[in-house]
Design a binder for these strands. Structure first.
Lengths: 167, 167
DNA sequence: ATACTTGCAAATGATTTGCCAGTGT
DNA sequence: ACACTGGCAAATCATTTGCAAGTAT
């Protein structure tokens, strides 16, 4: 079931198409059209998107491709460390192209916004979890879910700096 | 789509069959056999279980029932505040019978263990999240995911070093 | 040439919905 | 009686798998 993929570790995040394609080639896997399309869609989207969005070519901006192949390629690319995905509440998984630059997320359960954070920014949370429960929390695959500042405190207008993107 | 269910607020958690049945009656809904079976299963299980486990009568310990009806009844009972459910990673949702006694959870992504906590026990975490992100976190529907103490630090805990398991 | 891959169909797992017969109050 | 429910089939949604045909190297 595992395919032979050399666990080639890189130290730099691959966020450009050429780098990603080189990484695929370098891993010994083939750089096919379908594979490149997945990379292009993720790159063009610049934010977490679903497998279906990729298969639909970002609503026509790119050629469409087979959903099953998209899933297979996402899995493959994730194995190479070029892609990651997470689950923000219900609905399909969301995939991003940013190599080993692990991020963590917070999802708003009322407006659907997803906030991306540097893992270090949540160290305080992780620390609190460890102290209170002994668990080592990780919010990169299953985000923190709750209500974003705007939904939690609508009175206070737009004082916060964040830019949210919606599903 | 919403059925007319008076949001009858109770202050006590209903953790016994009679209380739960009374609550169903009191809400104006009918106390049917299928409905009672769901309550009995949740009560007998004494821990979060899936809709399928309920439909299977906890593996024969109780009469089986229709899965679709189980889902419908779980939703209804959740509307009454008698039942809650949460999602621990992948896999089916897990349902519990404990009225408005909201709990929060932590799920171990390596051994599958689920730890239940009083919401107040995680106030420190919620506080850290609020300070660092402005979000109001809630871990009752989507738990904190990470590694439990045993999986995170195998040296301690059990005598033998690795190989953890469980459901 | 020959694996690795794709595309399409079909299967899975979780949950929902349509519909009509059944039943609680 | 009559509206609320149950049971069963079928539909949905997200994702996976089987396989024969296609293609990158």
């Amino acid at each position: 079931m595992l395919m032979t993929v050399s666990p080639r570790r890189r130290s730099v995040a691959v966020s450009d198409l050429d780098g990603a394609m080189a990484a695929v080639r370098g891993s010994g896997l083939r750089l096919t059209t379908a594979r490149r399309l997945v990379l292009e869609a993720l790159l063009a989207a610049k934010r977490p998107i679903s497998a279906e969005q990729i298969a639909h070519g970002l609503d026509g901006r790119l050629p469409a491709s087979d959903l099953a192949s998209v899933y297979r390629n996402l899995e493959t690319l994730e194995g190479l460390g070029l892609v990651r995905h997470f689950h923000a509440g219900h609905g399909p998984g969301r995939y991003v192209l940013d190599g080993f630059t692990e991020h963590e997320y917070l999802a708003c359960e009322s407006c659907g916004a997803v906030e991306e954070m540097e893992p270090s920014a949540l160290d305080g949370v992780r620390e609190a979890v460890r102290e209170l429960t002994g668990f080592e929390a990780r919010f990169s695959h299953f985000p923190i879910v709750g209500r974003c500042p705007r939904c939690a405190r609508p009175e206070r207008g737009r004082s916060t700096k964040e830019v949210h993107h919606h599903a």
